[in-house]
Simulated scan of single mutants.
Amino acid sequence: MMKNNLGGFDFLGKHYNQNNMEIVYANDIDDNACKIFEENFNLKPDNRDIREVESSELPDIDVLTGGFPCQSFSIIAQNPKRLGVKDDRGKLFFEMCRILREKQPKCFIAENVKGILTANKKEAFPLIIKEFENSGYTVKYQILNSANYGVPQKRERVIIVGFRNDLHIDFHFPESVIINSSEFEPLKKVIENSVDEKYYFSQRAVDGMMKCREKMNKGRAQDIEKPCNTVGGTSRKSLIE
């Protein structure tokens, strides 16, 4: 099994030291995501459906990380209320809890869009946290924005961190590195100088986007003097001025 240390790189003039962590396993059902992961981390992910992967097949781990779709959750009308799913995507959350219960790593990190806090009339998220706690972990969560930590993108995500109960660790989220939005890293610092023509919009598309820029949601005109807005997965159209 391939292993790779994390850290040990330079980004926007800052050096990030190599840490004492190794990636020993990765899983994603999307072929393109697997290719990008392998290119960046020199580790080929297991691209089977995670529901088909037995915990006994996984290596021993200290930290489990994962993201799971939130749009699949629903509250089944029962007494007491239980966490239900509308489709197979929602089962990824339960698979993460399954691995936590059966492998018992020291801690886990999960992430999701901030909308999960209000999903199902704010009833889904408390049940999600409860499932993590019932897996044997002390859990905390917080909304973090990547722009506050030197990334030239405004990306708010709910980060959920849990430590195994027997470790008695009182975790605290790190303070923001950048508080004043005027000091955020601008998009222009990471734009490539040479871009293939196939990635450019036609002039007609550019004119249309600029005309509707104030009401645009999915496709957005990006200001290179500011951090990039998050580009949604359902529409990856983004115009750079």
Rank of each mutant, 00 (worst) to 15 (best):
G90Q: 06
Y25M: 11
T65S: 11
C34L: 09
K122T: 13
E95D: 14
A119S: 12
L187T: 08
K121F: 10
S194R: 11
T118A: 13
E111H: 07
G208P: 00
P227H: 02
S56Q: 12
V151W: 05
N19F: 01
V53G: 07
C34M: 10
E102P: 02
E57C: 02
N165Q: 15
E52K: 15
L6F: 11
G232H: 09
P59R: 10
P174G: 02
Y149F: 15
K35P: 00
V231A: 06
D207F: 04
Y200T: 01
K3F: 10
N165K: 15
L43W: 03
Q78D: 08
G115W: 10
V151S: 01
K114H: 08
N47M: 09
A33K: 08
D170Y: 07
K103H: 02
K226N: 05
G67H: 07
M1S: 14
E95P: 00
F68L: 08
S74D: 06
Y149T: 04
D31V: 13
N47D: 10
D49V: 07
I61A: 12
I143Y: 00
F73N: 05
V158R: 01
F37V: 06
M210L: 15
G115T: 06
A33D: 03
D10L: 10
V113G: 01
F132E: 02
S176K: 15
N193M: 09
L58G: 01
Y149E: 04
V113A: 11
E131F: 05
F93P: 04
K86S: 11
D166Y: 08
H168E: 13
N165W: 06
F171T: 02
